[in-house]
């Protein structure tokens, strides 16, 4: 039977199983929460070691990035992410993974043209938009100060 595009769309959407949110949402909540708890633990450690509040926060970010990159290099991060979903994608460890993964993957095309060029294929848009918006925000703040 000849189906119209709309009829066919209804058919394939009906036959396509949805994401099992009842499993993925709790898994993301649990894993994301555990990463935050870990971050808080590291921060408490830095604070008790005598670091200031501001320096501790930056040190926590650095520690979690190091952890994300290390787990990616050890080929463990994607296995955790398969269970955790957004739980490992949203925290800063996910950002670290999105840069480390292509760097590892494309090193076969050489250090410069492979790893360096392809390193930002996933994280590139985040960096571009973050830098651009920070510049715009800076200009607005500066204009506010001048006026």
């Amino acid at each position: 039977m000849k189906l119209s595009t709309e009829e066919y769309k209804k058919l394939w959407q009906k036959k396509s199983p949805p994401s099992p949110w009842y499993k993925t949402v709790p898994a993301a909540f649990l894993t994301g929460g555990l990463i935050c708890l870990l971050g808080q633990g590291i921060k408490s450690g830095f604070l008790s070691a005598g670091l200031s509040e501001k320096v501790s926060s930056a040190a926590v970010s650095c520690s979690l990035i190091l952890l994300g990159v290390s787990l990616t290099a050890l080929r463990i991060y994607d296995d955790i992410a398969r269970f955790a979903g957004a739980g490992t994608l949203v925290p800063i460890t996910g950002f670290a993974n999105s840069i480390a993964a292509p760097a590892i993957e494309f090193k076969t095309e050489g250090f410069i043209l492979g790893a360096c060029v392809k390193m930002f294929t996933i994280a590139g848009p985040v960096l571009t938009l973050a830098v651009t918006s920070s510049v715009i925000y800076g200009v607005i703040c500066w204009l506010g100060g001048v006026l």
């Binding site: 396509s16 199983p17 949805p18 994401s19 099992p20 993925t24 990616t72 080929r75 991060y77 994607d78 955790i80 992410a81 398969r82 955790a84 979903g85 957004a86 490992t88 994608l89 996910g94 993974n97 999105s98 480390a100 993964a101 292509p102 590892i104 993957e105 494309f106 996933i122």
Partner: peptide, 17 residues
């Protein structure tokens, strides 16, 4: 994967389809 989708170690989830 590396031609059509993401690097192997990237921690993304795949849809059921």
């Amino acid at each position: 994967e590396r031609q059509y989708r993401y690097p192997l170690e990237y921690g993304g989830q795949r849809p059921q389809t």
